[in-house]
Design a binder for these strands. Structure first.
Lengths: 208, 208
DNA sequence: GAAAAAGATTGAACGAGTTCATTTTTTAAG
DNA sequence: CTTAAAAAATGAACTCGTTCAATCTTTTTC
């Protein structure tokens, strides 16, 4: 048997992640005790720490999976976007926002974002930051694509524009997660209100 | 004697805040133990918790004072800004960024931002969020002022534009705090590179 | 297939933030 | 001035994340 050890290792890692995700979603991050997660995953507390550096890492790992999925969906939109700046942005951003609460609660997002800010040198925080960078690049690519198709004025700095759009939608998402009562639609409406006038400025097509 | 109690109370609150700020700056947030802060402030651990809900609150209180100062400096710039969009933005943002590291370390900022995201319902986190809102409004007011003086095209949505500029500079500041090696000048250069092309779009004055 | 080496697991012990029943101090009332 | 009531201070005890020396399991060696 070539990989009994490797097999057990993969199995345990997955069990821990599943147990943690379940408990985080059920009662929130703080209420899920390491001991509980270990028990549900059928490993000891010490073993859990062989797989993840600390409690936060487990959460960030969960969030990283979610972001990876969103990136894939976003790539499809960027490959063939609506040929209208405001609408293209709305479509891509809706893809991001709509997926965000499928597997994760606002509280989980808040905790994950807080961790990635507070301990940026952790391997999984680095990964989270890197995924953020990819999302940012994706928005920039959208603007570049629109520019290549003549929908955005040639003189516009697509890269800078994309970064600013991304930082805005990201910051607005943080604010959204801070207010439990705020619905997704309100977030989308507010971001659209910010982006639409700017989209009009860089657009070659005038909307009536 | 009307206010012995009130006087002692104010005195203790200040002593705790001073002690905490000193220890946070010296060795970082995590290394400063509650017991150490209490000892330096000459109160017991329990008393400290009568004045602040938790360790994070003490830090957020410190940061809130810093932001308040920055807001005052910003108001002077907005009242009489350079009559050039890119330059006006640069000036206001330099005021924000340059003050940011005078009293606080990047690590303190990271921790404070993380706390205000993670526990947004805490009184002092609310205060921090409110101050953020005031900074945002200040940037919007800058654009409005420039528009009123004819430097920004009349058709531009100054409010939306200001919010987007602010969210961008705020997000970039978070990234800046995540990388210990990054100097202030690099941050300002990157943000300027993002804002300058947009400033050109909304500006009535063309730069050669 | 037995023994040694390497790799993982374990849970008791530790550290630091937080709580709360008790004690002390201040104010108000008689 | 004495005493009762209110407010605040105190620190030992508690919780929970984290560590690490001892133990067990898997792999490699001969």
């Amino acid at each position: 048997m070539a990989g009994l050890r490797a097999k057990q290792k993969a199995d345990r890692a997955r069990r821990i992640l599943d147990a943690a995700a379940t408990l985080f979603r059920e009662g929130g991050y703080d209420s899920a005790r390491i001991e509980d997660i270990a028990e549900m995953a059928e490993v000891s507390v010490g073993t859990l720490y062989n797989y993840y550096q600390n409690k936060g890492d487990i959460l960030v790992a969960t969030v990283a999976m979610e972001v990876t999925e969103v990136l894939e969906g976003g790539a499809r939109i960027v490959a063939n976007p609506p040929l209208n700046v405001a609408e293209a942005l709305r479509t891509l951003i809706a893809q991001y926002y709509d997926h965000s609460l499928v597997y994760l609660s606002k509280e989980m997002w808040r905790t994950a974002m807080a961790i990635s800010i507070q301990q940026p040198e952790t391997p999984l925080s680095r990964r989270y930051t890197e995924l953020d960078g990819q999302l940012c690049a994706q928005v920039a690519r959208l603007i570049e694509t629109l520019q290549a198709r003549g929908v955005v004025h040639a003189g516009v700095d697509a890269r800078a524009m994309g970064e600013v759009f991304f930082n805005n939608l990201n910051m607005m998402f943080i604010e959204f997660c801070k207010v439990d009562a705020m619905p997704l639609e309100a977030l989308k409406a507010r971001v659209n209100a910010q982006h639409e006038p700017i989209a009009a400025l860089i657009s070659t097509v005038k909307i009536v």
